[in-house]
Write a protein that binds this DNA or RNA. Structure first.
Lengths: 340, 340
DNA sequence: CAAGAACGAGAAAACGTTTTCTCATTGGCG
DNA sequence: CGCCAATGAGAAAACGTTTTCTCGTTCTTG
C-alpha cells in the first residue's frame, strides 16, 4: 500500500510533480539559474532534498551533448610509467570537474584502434598515451578522434602532442657511461611497436657517429620486469660493461637477474634505466636513469585537452620535454679502467 | 555546396535515410538482430560502413538503461597499492566488455561521499576501495550506491565485501620479529581514517595479550613515502629494534631516511612493510612484508560486481583474504641478542 | 492610464538510441 | 480458395535531461 514500485529511480518528473512545478523549472533550479522565483526555488530544492533527487548524468549528457568525461588509452596499466601519467591526468582533470575513463590495451596494438574509438566516443575527448599502432593507422584514426592529445607520438593532422626527448636522454646516458670509462655498451631494446624505442635507437645512432671508438651493440628485449630478468645471461655473455635498459622496469628486472647470477652492479657491470619511475631511486643499487616528468606529462595532457574542449586552437602543436639524468648507484667506473 | 554542416556527427537517422529504411531497422541491424531481411541488412551495413557510423554510447545508454561502465573510488591513485587494485579491476572488467571510471579522493575523506555518488551514477555499479569515510557515513551511503562492492570495509546492509586480514598479517610480522629476537617493537600507525589501520591495531592488541614480555609501542605516522622518511629520527629515538611500518610505502621512506642517518638495516634495525607492492622486493635491502593479493582483489571485486549486475544474489557477503609473510632482507636478528 | 519591456514559468522540442506496438505482406494449410 | 499464422519492417513511445519557444503577468515609463 505504501511503496509499490520496487525502487524506481527518482527523476526530475517526481520532483516537479511533488513541488507542483514544471520539469523546466526543476531543471533551472538544479542548475542554479537565477531566473526563477526564490520562493519556488526554495520549495523545489526542499522537495529535491527530501526525495534525494540527483540528476541522471546520462540524460544530462545526452541533452547537453557532453559528458564531462575523457578517456585515456594506455598500453599497459601495470606499468608504473603509465600509472604515473594516469595519475597526473586524473588529478588535473578532476580539478576541472572532469573524470577519466580507462582503456588498457595490454600491449595488444591490434586492439588499440577499437579501444581508442570506444574511449573517445564515451567522452568528450581522449588522450592516447604512447599508442603502439603504426604510423599509418594513427594518421588515419587521428581525425576521427578529435579532440585528442597524444603523448609520445605525433599525427600528421597536427594533433597536439606531448613528447619526451628520448634521443637526447639515451645519448646522455651513453655519455655518462663513457665518462665512467665504459667502451662496450649494450642497449636492451624495447618493443618494436614502441615509438619511443625508435627514438632511443635514433639517439644511439647519433651517439655512434660522434663516438666512433665506443662499441654500442643492441639486443632485442621487451618492456617488462620479466624481460629484463630474462636478459641477464645474454647481457653477461655480451661482454659489455655498460648496459642501457629500455626502461626502469627492464633495468630492475636485469638488476634482479644479475644479482642472482652473482654479478655485482656497478662493480662488474653498470646499468641504466629510463623514466625514473617512483621507485627507481630505491632499488639496490639505486638506479641511474633518465628522468621523464611523468606526472607532469599527464597534467599537461589534460590542460591541452581542456583548451581544446573549450574551443581554443592550440598555440604550439608539439611540446617536447627534456629528460634529466639521475646518477645513482647502478653505474660506476668501468672495471678494466686503470686506476687514476 | 557540398558539405555545409561543418561536422555534424553521423547518426542513426543518416544511415536510415541513406539506406532507405527506418531507424528501427538500422538499430536492429547494428545490434545483430536476425529478424531482418539479409538483403536489407547487407545494404544497411554497407551504408553504415560508408558513413563510418558508430552508435552514440550516450543515446544507447539512455535507451538501454545501462552504460557498461563501472566506477572505482580510491583514496590515492599515486599509491601503488591502489594502482594494483585498479589494474586488476580494469583488466577483469575489460574482459567482460566493461570500462572503468576513476574517482580519486586524494585522501580527502570529506569528498568521498560526493565522489562515490558521482561515480556510481555515471555507471552501472561502483567499487569503493578502502574508503576513508567513517562507519556511519558509509552505512548511510551504502544503500544508495548499490550495486556496489567494498574493498577493505564493511557496510551494515550486507554489501558484498573483499577484505584482507590485516590483524593476522601484522601479528605474523610481529611474531617474525620476535622470533628474530626483537623485544622492543614499534608500529608506525597509518591514517586514523583508515579502517585497515584499525585492524592492524586490533591485531597488535591480540599480539600484546599473547606476548606480555614484548614491548609494542606506537607512533602516529602516515601512508606515504614522505611520512616514513620523516619518521626516521623518531624511530631511532624510540629505541625499538623492530619497526613495523603501516605499509610498504612508509617502510620504503623509512628505509631511505634511516640510510641517510647512517642506520643500517637490518643490522641496527629491522623494518617490515605491508602490502607487498610490486617493488617491495627490490628496495635495498629488500623489504620483509605481508603480501596482499592486490591485483586479485581488483579482479575479484569485478567478478562480484558482475554477478550483482546480472541480478544474482551474492552467496557469501564477505570474502577474507589472508596475507602471506615475505621474509626478505630488511629484517634480521636483533642486535643485542647474544650469539647462539 | 495604456503600451511596451522585463520577467518568470510552462509546453514542447531536442539529444540519439532501443524497443514495444502495430500493421502489411507472405506463406502454409485446411 | 480463403483464413490464420508467421514474418519482417515501420511508427511511435520511451529513456531523463536541457533548452528554446511561447505566453501570461507584472512592472516601468511616457
Amino acid at each position: 500500500m505504501q511503496k509499490r514500485a520496487v525502487a524506481r529511480r527518482v527523476g526530475i518528473a517526481d520532483v516537479a510533480a511533488q513541488a507542483g512545478v514544471s520539469l523546466a523549472t526543476v531543471s533551472r533550479v538544479m542548475n542554479g539559474s537565477f531566473t526563477v522565483d526564490p520562493t519556488i526555488a526554495a520549495r523545489v530544492r526542499s522537495v529535491a532534498g527530501e526525495l534525494k533527487y540527483q540528476a541522471n548524468p546520462v540524460g544530462r549528457s545526452l541533452a547537453r551533448g557532453k559528458t564531462e568525461t575523457i578517456g585515456i588509452l594506455v598500453p599497459d596499466l601495470a606499468n608504473p610509467m603509465f600509472q604515473a601519467v594516469l595519475h597526473g591526468l586524473s588529478s588535473a582533470a578532476a580539478e576541472d570537474g572532469y573524470r577519466v575513463l580507462i582503456a588498457d590495451s595490454s600491449e595488444t596494438s591490434s586492439e588499440e584502434s577499437i579501444l581508442a574509438a570506444e574511449a573517445r566516443r564515451r567522452g568528450d575527448g581522449v588522450v592516447l598515451c604512447a599508442p603502439r599502432m603504426n604510423e599509418a593507422e594513427l594518421n588515419e584514426l587521428a581525425p576521427s578522434l578529435q579532440p585528442m592529445v597524444l603523448i609520445n607520438r605525433n599525427a600528421s593532422d597536427g594533433t597536439p602532442s606531448l613528447s619526451v626527448d628520448y634521443a637526447q636522454g639515451i645519448q646522455e646516458l651513453a655519455e655518462h657511461l663513457v665518462e665512467l670509462g665504459h667502451r662496450r655498451l649494450l642497449f636492451l631494446s624495447g618493443p618494436e611497436t614502441s615509438a619511443s624505442n625508435r627514438l632511443r635507437l635514433l639517439g644511439l645512432d647519433s651517439f655512434r657517429a660522434s663516438h666512433p671508438a665506443v662499441e654500442v651493440s643492441l639486443e632485442q628485449c621487451g618492456f617488462s620486469f620479466a624481460s629484463g630478468y630474462d636478459a641477464a645471461s645474454l647481457v653477461v655473455a655480451s661482454g659489455a660493461t655498460g648496459v642501457m635498459a629500455f626502461n626502469d622496469l627492464v633495468a630492475m628486472g636485469l638488476l634482479s637477474g644479475l644479482h642472482e647470477q652473482g654479478v655485482s652492479v656497478p662493480q662488474d657491470l653498470s646499468v641504466t634505466g629510463f623514466d625514473d619511475i617512483p621507485f627507481a631511486a630505491y632499488t639496490s643499487p639505486p638506479l641511474t636513469t633518465a628522468a621523464v616528468p611523468l606526472t607532469m606529462l599527464g597534467e599537461q595532457a589534460w590542460h591541452r585537452l581542456h583548451q581544446l574542449l573549450q574551443g581554443s586552437v592550440p598555440e604550439e602543436p608539439e611540446t617536447i620535454f627534456r629528460t634529466e639524468i639521475q646518477v645513482r648507484g647502478s653505474t660506476g667506473p668501468a672495471r678494466s679502467l686503470p686506476a687514476m
